[in-house]
Design a protein around this nucleic acid. Structure first.
Lengths: 246, 246
DNA sequence: GGAATAGTGTCTATTAGACACTATATG
DNA sequence: CATATAGTGTCTAATAGACACTATTCC
């Protein structure tokens, strides 16, 4: 316990950020974790995080971006606050408040830039495994819930593909996030009718021996829809699978 | 500035909670505000809030409930985290982190219990007015955005009516939150088909000289739907207005 | 019966979903 | 030509929305 813990306005809690960086690799949702070098839970796997620094960080978002720069060498495609986790017992060093943030990136932008001691782990494996340090399993669970929930009625999954993408790639991201198959014609009509995309004018071929596809970019930032994309009743179609590293 | 602000792990920011307590009164959305007695912005209107207290508060949610007990004498019907506001400049006392929370209550449960120096103010008036202390206008704006956004596809507005309510009362809450008129037949079918309500078996009459209505309660906590309730194209129907204090 | 609100039935325009079909590239 | 994916057209079942209609209470 920490001797700084006295009651009154001069008392202050430990303040940190924890970042859930998610990406799609090989058609699976993966999370960046690292083996803690020091401090509590040294040697165990945990989410990247750290203390707030008054001189460097202008906000919790800035602190999260600093952490990600150190661990994955990148600014994320999308970063949003997830939830505050707080209390006297979640950190053995004392009463703490941690702002958890969800970061999304296309896989291609971090592979190779991942720092020593870090790795990408499929979320499904992680939910079974021996568990993360602190209350990070709880934080991870909340991140997955948020992504799955918000992913169905927003352009959030677009942050998991590159700036420029084909409709098949985008659909693949939605399918991985939502865990369902989505009919390509329905998806195409929905996305284009929503007006959240714009053509780049360029085409790409996803695989050889096939027709090239138009590429698109997001017209704006993340937007929300008033209806869910796809449905749980859609069968998972074989064509639904799309390669992200052709 | 505070001399505690030195770089390094022993440094800690000011940590507070700010609560946006919303309710519906006279068919308008209202917010609890108070005139600051001391400290920065003394004499100005602000959202209720306060320091985290290590001995009393087990979490930010508990701190928010304590603040609400002091100012409005109640545990809220619904309490959820909104967003963290943080940075070196938002509080003149130094680098601060504030967890903003959204609290919803039926109006009847707080009228009379509101503490000295506090008042309920319609949100629309507040958005025009001279503005709140700190960055509380920003926090209020985020609270309204959250309520309007989430209100359309969840049972969140139910927290603004009593535990037991008629479908007309509930529909009225949705109409106030969303700012649209909702057809009563459509609303009835949607809500009952969703299976989020259960009959209490008791009936109430909203006004004299009319047929009594069945009352319902929420089957669970807040649930989300995959489709928006109502639509912007619905005309505001005269019958849509419902009295909350008959 | 009159007034007021609760609750139901019906029609229609829209659309999600399913799926067949055409188009365009490579080899 | 075959192959593989992009992109389009069509049909259907489901339903949101509009609105008329019936039901139940108090006066």
């Amino acid at each position: 316990m920490n001797t700084q813990q006295v009651t009154g306005p001069e008392w202050r809690p430990i303040a940190t950020v924890d970042v859930v960086l998610m990406t799609i690799r090989e058609e699976r949702l993966e999370v960046l974790i690292l083996r803690r070098a020091a401090g509590p839970f040294a040697g165990e796997w945990a989410l990247p995080g750290g203390y707030l620094r008054p001189e460097e960080d202008m906000s919790v978002e800035a602190a999260a971006e600093r952490v990600l720069r150190e661990k994955a060498g990148l600014p994320p495609q999308h970063l949003e606050q997830l939830q505050v986790f707080s209390g006297p017992d979640r950190d053995p060093r004392g009463w703490s408040i941690s702002c958890a943030l969800l970061a999304l990136v296309p896989c291609a932008s971090i592979e190779g830039a991942i720092a020593e001691g870090c790795r990408l782990q499929p979320v499904d494996d992680l939910l079974q495994g021996p568990g993360l340090a602190f209350d990070h399993d709880l934080i991870l669970g909340e991140a997955i819930r948020r992504l799955r929930g918000k992913g169905g009625y927003s352009t959030l999954p677009a942050a998991l593909v590159g700036d420029e993408f084909t409709l098949s790639e985008l659909r693949g991201a939605y399918e991985v996030v939502l865990g369902i198959g989505i009919d390509k014609a329905v998806f195409r009509k929905r996305m284009l009718d929503l007006g959240v995309l714009e053509e780049t004018g360029r085409t790409t071929r996803i695989v050889p021996n096939s027709r090239p596809a138009m590429t698109y970019r997001l017209r704006d930032g993340v937007r929300t829809f008033d209806r869910q994309v796809g449905s749980a009743s859609s069968p998972v179609r074989p064509e639904g699978k799309v390669r992200y590293q052709p």
